[in-house]
C-alpha cells in the first residue's frame, strides 16, 4: 500500500484529530462544572477517580470516587451527548466520602470528578477511559 503526499498529510491530520478529541474541553461539561462550583477555581489533589483504562463495553463501566472530607462529588462524562452522570451528597453518617457506581460512556473520553470540600473549596480530577467497540455485535 502506498500513499500520495496528500493522503499522508490527511492521514496525519486524522490521527491528530483522533488523538486530541477525547481531551477537547467540552462546553456542556465546562458549564456543568461552573454551575457546581459557582465559577470558583478547582484545585488539584484530594479527589480520586478510579475507572478502567479500557472499558470492554461503554454500556456498563464501573467507577469509584473518593474525596476525604468532601461534602459532595459531581461526576461528569465529558464526551457524552449530555455530560451529567451523578452527584453524590454525603450525609452526617457517611462512613467515607466515597462511592461506586456503573455508568454509560458513549465513546472514548475523559470522565471528570469535582469535589466540594467542607470549607467551600473545590478540587477536580479526570481520567481517560478508552471505550472499545467489539467486532462481534452478536
Amino acid at each position: 500500500m502506498s500513499f500520495s503526499r496528500r493522503e499522508t498529510l490527511v492521514l496525519g491530520l486524522g490521527a491528530v484529530a483522533l488523538g486530541f478529541m477525547p481531551f477537547r474541553a467540552n462546553a456542556a461539561a465546562e458549564d456543568a462544572i461552573a454551575a457546581f462550583t459557582g465559577g470558583a477555581e478547582a484545585g488539584e489533589g484530594g479527589v480520586t477517580l478510579t475507572a478502567p483504562e479500557i472499558a470492554e463495553n461503554g454500556n456498563t463501566v464501573p467507577i469509584s470516587v473518593d474525596a476525604p472530607g468532601a461534602v459532595s462529588i459531581l461526576v461528569l462524562a465529558s464526551g457524552n451527548p449530555t455530560p451529567g452522570v451523578a452527584q453524590f451528597n454525603f450525609g452526617e453518617l457517611a462512613g467515607s466520602q466515597s462511592a461506586s457506581t456503573r455508568i454509560r460512556l458513549a465513546g472514548t473520553q475523559d470522565v471528570v470528578a469535582v469535589a466540594k470540600m467542607a470549607d467551600g473549596s473545590f478540587v477536580k480530577t479526570a481520567s481517560t477511559v478508552k471505550v472499545t467497540i467489539g467486532g462481534c455485535g452478536g
Binding site: M1, G14, T132
Partner: peptide, 21 residues
C-alpha cells in the same frame, strides 16, 4: 480522507488495541 487512508488508520488503531490484550 479517502477510503484507503481510512482503512489504514482503522488498522493502526485495531493493532494498538490488540497489543493491550
Amino acid at each position: 480522507m479517502n477510503f484507503k487512508a481510512m482503512t489504514a488508520l482503522a488498522g493502526a488503531l485495531a493493532l494498538s488495541a490488540g497489543l493491550a490484550n
